[in-house]
């Protein structure tokens, strides 16, 4: 049996998202549990990426986007104007589909966040943060002798782990991953999945994935989205062995018409 954590980290209530006239999310009620991996699955355009972009207020950068409803992190509402999105994003890191290191050195990629958030008082402290973050991202041994080389000189899988190191360098509580392995080969994917197993001990992780088997491998809970609605959320074991909803079953078994 999978260990299930019952502490809710992120509570979403009646969340609606509109891009202009188009409604992208429809009354989503979802609880993300602390120090677990929650996988979000569903066909393209179902709203899963829109959902995770609400958690760190990434949708704010889209002019025509309007978000209603409530998102609480540790009981604090984040979906309100007064929230300082910069410090919110310090708490909520994000990793994207395509590795996107800054056009800077490996070292600078990781020190960038701690630098702008003023997390290191001196170079010794910053070196420590960079080393710890790269170690946590399981990349340190591969890059420790080439920290001044550009981040873009690394392989795709290494770049993705560099992005994870960059995300965790500012001590976030939540890591959002939007299809983090879709551009990676199976070995690089396995390294990220292994890393997720390790990271979930310290962080709450939400991953959007198109790979059912990846969702089964890495997550403890799974939510299925369709046409902007959360159709079903349950333990991953339940969803993939015996889902309650026929639509969930038809999607995960490849019957979706």
């Amino acid at each position: 049996m999978v260990m299930i954590n019952n502490k809710v980290k992120i509570k979403t209530t009646n969340l609606n998202v509109y891009y202009g006239d188009k409604q992208a999310l429809n009354d989503v009620n979802l609880e993300i549990h602390s120090k677990e991996v929650t996988a979000l699955i569903g066909p393209s355009g179902c709203g899963k990426s829109t959902y995770i972009r609400c958690i760190n207020r990434m949708n704010d950068v889209i002019d025509i986007c309007r978000v209603t409803g409530s998102i609480e992190i540790d009981g604090n509402e984040i979906n309100k104007k007064e929230i300082d999105v910069v410090s919110l994003r310090e708490k909520i890191g994000m990793v994207f589909q395509k590795p996107n290191p800054f056009p800077k050195s490996i070292y600078d990629n990781v020190s960038y966040g701690p630098n702008i958030h003023g997390l290191a008082e001196n170079k010794v402290k910053m070196d420590e943060i960079v080393e710890t973050s790269l170690k946590k991202a399981a990349l340190w041994n591969e890059v420790k002798d080439r920290l001044n080389e550009p981040g873009t000189s690394l392989s795709g899988g290494q770049q993705q782990r560099l992005c994870i190191a960059r995300a965790i360098s500012v001590n976030p509580e939540v890591i959002l991953m939007d299809e983090p392995c879709s551009a990676l080969d199976p070995i690089a994917t396995a390294k990220i999945e292994e890393l997720m197993d390790e990271l979930k001990k310290s962080y709450t992780i939400v991953i959007v994935t198109h790979s059912m088997s990846q969702a089964v491998r890495v997550s403890q809970r799974t939510g299925f989205f369709h046409l902007g609605k959360l159709i079903e959320v349950d333990t991953t074991e339940k969803i993939f062995k015996n889902p309650n909803n026929k639509m969930t079953q038809d999607y995960i078994t490849g019957r979706f018409g």
Binding site: S213, I239, F240, N242, P243, T248, Q249, I252, T253, G254
Partner: peptide
């Protein structure tokens, strides 16, 4: 080939 899920797995 299929990594069957749900009803197919059962």
């Amino acid at each position: 080939k299929r990594a069957p899920m749900a009803i197919d797995l059962r």
